[in-house]
Amino acid sequence: MTPPMRIALIASNHFPIRQPFAGGLEAHVWHLARALTQAGHLVSLFAAPDSDPSLESALLQVRSLELSAAALTDSSMPSATFMGDHHAYLTLMLRLARGPSEEFDVIHNHSLHHLPVAMAPMLTTPMLCTLHTPPTPWLESAISATTGTGARFAAVSGYTARSWQHLLPDITVVRNGVDAQRWPLGPGGRDLIWFGRITPEKAPHLAISAARRAGLRLVIAGPVSDPGYFARDVQPELGSDVHYAGHLAHRELAHLVGTSAAALVTPQWDEPYGLVVAEAMVCGTPVVAFARGGVPEIVDDRSGRLVPAGDVAAMAAAIPQALTMSRLAVHRQAAKRCSATAMVTDYLDIYRTMIDDPGRTDTDDRLLHPSPRHRAS
């Protein structure tokens, strides 16, 4: 029997890993931590305090920053948020670098902060970094400065992998997986659904316009991440044909998605992956989405409809086509493309390869190229 691995997961220090999730990254880390623990591995989690105790993960807590009055009033003092982030990740990485080499078998970084990548060469424990976004200035600087040494890299979609090719020419693609037991096949319903973080770049106001053109009621669910945008562009549109259901816990959200006729996905930016797309499809709910970023890698004519980015009229016209689709066929297509089991299996394979041969950072073909089930298609 293969012995259990000791795995450290690094997430955001801003948000706890618990329901209701702040966003897709937090949901992804929650599901991964849960799946790894259920597979018998020992998981330690770095995230904001108050993460879900049911994950049965040890917590990698760090000392909070308490600056002196002199430091606080210095002219070079950046924002408190920046300093808090810097201190949290600096403390964590120094602990991992100075700690006993046998404390962890592998470190899996999901944070968007630059310090885990910048300090990776200090580690004796192999580290995998999953890239959840296209390039950001700080993260790109860290990878450029280290030339990617000290870590191996995976990306959540072919689109995201290609966006990093100027620095990381070969990168593993491991799509975020969705647990079908937690997103069960639903019977559908009459209303459309839009769910996710309520921000301008997610653009639920465009979903409202498309639903009204199609003559169907729309339900919106998710955290109000930009209160000004919500007050200006969403709240005034609420009424009998547009309902805001709130920021729901997982069970309620999965039920709502599974009892919806179709899901509208309206990104105004290039989605690195599109977790809400996968979640809707696993529930059997067909998706009508703007074709941006990684979304076209998940949606095809067996699971929904893609329309040109920003084209509300095309989205409205595609909704009746999506409503005729077999929910079972949509679910089965999602199981092929967005399987949580396949995701965890691929990550475990990568972990084992890194542990067996931690010195190889850029020559292992198994790591550098997607497995067939994770290639963009």
Rank of each mutant, 00 (worst) to 15 (best):
H166G: 02
W164Q: 06
T147E: 12
R213D: 11
F153D: 06
L216F: 04
P204S: 09
L168F: 08
R162V: 00
I220G: 01
D179V: 07
A203L: 04
G189H: 09
P200G: 00
S157V: 00
Y159E: 03
L185N: 11
R182K: 11
G150Y: 08
A155C: 02
V156E: 05
W194N: 12
W194E: 08
A151H: 04
P223R: 14
L216T: 07
A155E: 02
H205N: 15
D170F: 13
I171K: 00
W138H: 11
A142Y: 00
V156I: 15
P187N: 01
H166A: 09
G188C: 11
L206I: 06
G186K: 10
V178N: 04
I171C: 14
P184W: 10
I220V: 13
R162E: 11
D170S: 12
W194A: 12
W138L: 13
G188T: 03
I208Q: 07
T149K: 14
R197Y: 08
D191I: 06
A155Q: 06
V219E: 09
T149N: 11
G228H: 06
I198M: 03
F153Y: 15
P204M: 08
I208H: 03
A155F: 01
L216K: 13
P184F: 06
R212F: 02
S144C: 05
Y159W: 15
V224I: 15
G186T: 05
A151N: 04
G148H: 01
P184H: 00
P223M: 03
A145R: 13
P223F: 03
V156L: 13
T199V: 13
S144T: 12
P187E: 09
G158W: 06
A154N: 03
I220C: 01
L218Q: 08
V156F: 09
P223W: 02
S141Q: 14
G150W: 01
D179A: 12
P169W: 12
P204H: 04
D191E: 15
R175M: 10
A142S: 12
A145T: 12
T146W: 00
R212G: 07
A180K: 14
I208R: 09
A154L: 05
T172A: 15
T199I: 10
F153G: 03
T147I: 04
S144F: 11
G196H: 06
Y159T: 00
P184T: 10
V173M: 03
